[in-house]
């Protein structure tokens, strides 16, 4: 399996663990990721807040580069995924848009290729049976809250691979890796990422609700597929604890980190040491479970 790979701006910086673990997982699964050469920023919310044409043209340049190679595009970040999906649909749906966008990006782009969420690629496209068979170091009952956030599965018009209110892709993945996915109500609520730089008060409140409900549901870790969710839930967790006078202590991990861990990659090589909230309890719990299983098979 070969895909064009659009890492997006976070994966070289704040989302470095996502990048490291994605490459590790792709290697084990035998998925070839061809990074789009000299890709540009998708424009994020800044572009669609400001100018519709710009919000379609910036993603289109990347999608057109992939289309030339005849490849579907795998996108890790939920926000980039949503922007690229919106562009793909707009271009496919209207000849006028297609022409205008092709003119603006100086390249033909006909949306003949598809944009896929990396989560979709590593689970549904690769096959969960294959994933389970490669999980030689299963995650022995680790209790996880699968957090999809807003843009990975919503709106249904754009994100088509799972249910917008009660998605299951990550839950099934946890099952295949030997972990447990707790049932909780905030799977698809927003962390407030859009305000991270302007109204941190709102981010702290919205992210607090997500963490509080994951904790209440008995999770030992939150699993995410979005670098913006990660930044809010991980980096700001201490601040959220202080503001609300509570202890949360919930490690936040990318689904790719848990996949790579179950595939036997070393935690330090896939970014476990780069988080703000200590992730060693997760590694310890998984190792303990494994040892216990070895004693009583």
């Amino acid at each position: 399996m070969k895909y064009a790979y659009y890492p997006g701006c976070s994966l070289d910086s704040t989302g470095i663990e996502y990048q490291l673990s994605t490459k590790a997982v792709a290697g084990t699964l035998g998925v070839e990721l061809w990074e789009i050469p000299e890709w540009n920023c998708c424009g994020a919310s800044a572009a669609h807040n400001t100018d519709r044409l710009l919000s379609l043209a910036l993603p289109a340049r990347n999608l057109a580069l992939a289309e030339k190679e005849g490849l579907d595009v795998a996108v890790p970040c939920a926000a980039c995924y949503s922007r690229m999906k919106a562009t793909e649909k707009a271009v496919r749906g209207s000849e006028d848009v297609r022409e205008k966008i092709s003119e603006i990006i100086e390249m033909e782009y006909g949306a003949s290729n598809r944009t896929l969420a990396l989560l979709d690629v590593f689970t549904n496209q690769a096959g969960l049976e294959q994933v389970a068979s490669l999980a030689t170091k299963p995650l022995q009952g680790l209790k996880t809250a699968c957090y999809y956030g807003c843009l990975m599965v919503k709106p249904p018009r754009l994100a088509e691979f799972d249910d917008p209110e009660d998605p299951q892709t990550m839950d099934r993945l946890m099952d295949a890796l030997g972990a447990e996915a707790v049932s909780w109500p905030y799977k698809t609520e927003c962390c407030g990422a859009g305000f991270a730089s302007s109204r941190t008060d709102i981010v702290l409140q919205m992210s607090y609700e997500v963490l509080r409900l994951a904790k209440t549901a008995g999770a030992e870790a939150v699993v995410t597929a979005c670098p913006l969710c990660m930044l809010n839930l991980d980096m700001r967790q201490k601040e959220i604890e202080a503001k609300n006078g509570v202890a949360i202590d919930l490690p936040i991990l990318y689904f790719t980190e848990l996949m790579a861990l179950a595939f036997g990659h070393k935690p330090a090589a896939i970014g476990f040491n780069k988080h703000f909230v200590d992730t060693t309890p997760v590694v310890r719990k998984v190792e303990q479970g494994r040892r216990a299983k070895e004693v009583q098979p």
Binding site: C150, P155, R157, T188, G192, A193, F195
Partner: peptide, 11 residues
């Protein structure tokens, strides 16, 4: 400006 574009409402 405080709409987070989270897409809950349209869903």
């Amino acid at each position: 400006w405080l709409c987070a574009s989270c897409e809950n409402c349209i869903t």
